[in-house]
Amino acid sequence: MNIDHPNVLEVEDLGVSFDGFKAVDGFNFYLAQNHVHVIIGPNGAGKTTVLDLICGKTLATAGSIKFKGKELRGSREYRIVRAGIGRKFQNPSIYENLTVFENLELSHPTGRGVIGCLMFRRTASIKQQCEDVAAQIGLSDRLDTEAGILSHGQKQWLEIGMLLMQDPEIIMLDEPVAGMSVRERTQTATLIRKISKDRSVIVIEHDMEFVREIADRVTVMHLGKILAEGSMEKVSNDPKVIEVYIGH
């Protein structure tokens, strides 16, 4: 274990089978603190399933998921979130009828129980936090805009912003630049580099250029298993990886 970057998440022998089909099998994954760790692989390799398993959306059938030494496997989703793991979905998943500000505010961790919701007041500090996050994701001037009319890229950023509001220690992003313009991709890369200063980030991505820009470490998946792991240079020169993924 690296002393400068201790592991925050340790996934060992993780597996899930759907009616005998092993979507993820014997998956080992160590996420170091303040690293951006990218998972790549061809379609159907099980990348999204890995995120589903970590965040509790799908229940694992084998292995362990330890977050700072605490077992997460089997916990309810909201408990995993409250422990400090945030997740962004592949398609932007935001509240279209609410404004950008309300979207961010609803993601603020104060008052997530029934009573807490009833007692919730918009304090100056919560307002400030929403504005700070909006500035980070470049939506400061859109705070009062209804989220549904944002551009696709802005919706993606808003969802990242909603995760930032929760102030998680791990952020998982499923294809954050899908459907973005080149300029938006560059901005997103800068954003991800920036947010990884205080937290660890897992990203699933297809765009190799983008991966090169952001990744501290890359894991290549194929048919539910790990094919290769290491720095971007190392994996992109790996003959197995070239054969199943990059070469195509």
Binding site: C55, K57, Y78, V81, R82, G86, S93, I94, S107, E159
Partner: peptide
């Protein structure tokens, strides 16, 4: 409207 998002914002739906 977005059950999963609420759940993954830490609410006990």
């Amino acid at each position: 409207d977005r059950e999963d998002r609420v759940r993954f914002s830490g609410y006990d739906v």
